[in-house]
């Protein structure tokens, strides 16, 4: 599953690659992950990024570090 998540996240990063500034790219990626990914998917990827994050593109790493760990669902 983690390969899928890395691939999908990088794809999202590629879309925001046309943004003129890094800030806008990072914000765009982070917002997309928040709006469309489940908390468990985000958690897994953040954990992976913190471990070694091999294969993750730079903008995606930046966006992940910006994402607060999601509040635990009941």
């Amino acid at each position: 599953m983690i390969e899928d998540l890395v691939r999908m996240a990088n794809q999202i990063g590629d879309f925001f690659g046309s943004e003129p500034s890094q800030e806008e790219a990072t914000a765009g990626i982070a917002e997309h992950l928040k709006k469309f990914w489940t908390p468990s998917m985000r958690e897994k990827l953040i954990e992976y990024a913190q471990r070694d994050g091999k294969g993750l593109s730079e903008p995606v790493r930046a966006a992940l570090s910006r994402l607060l760990p999601p509040s635990a669902g009941s």
Partner: peptide
């Protein structure tokens, strides 16, 4: 009832999650 405020799984995510037993 209370409704979950976070997005859920899409079909392909459901299948990927199934492959790892979740």
């Amino acid at each position: 009832v209370e409704i979950d405020p976070e997005p859920g799984f899409r079909i392909t995510n459901m299948l990927s999650a199934a492959s790892i037993g979740e």
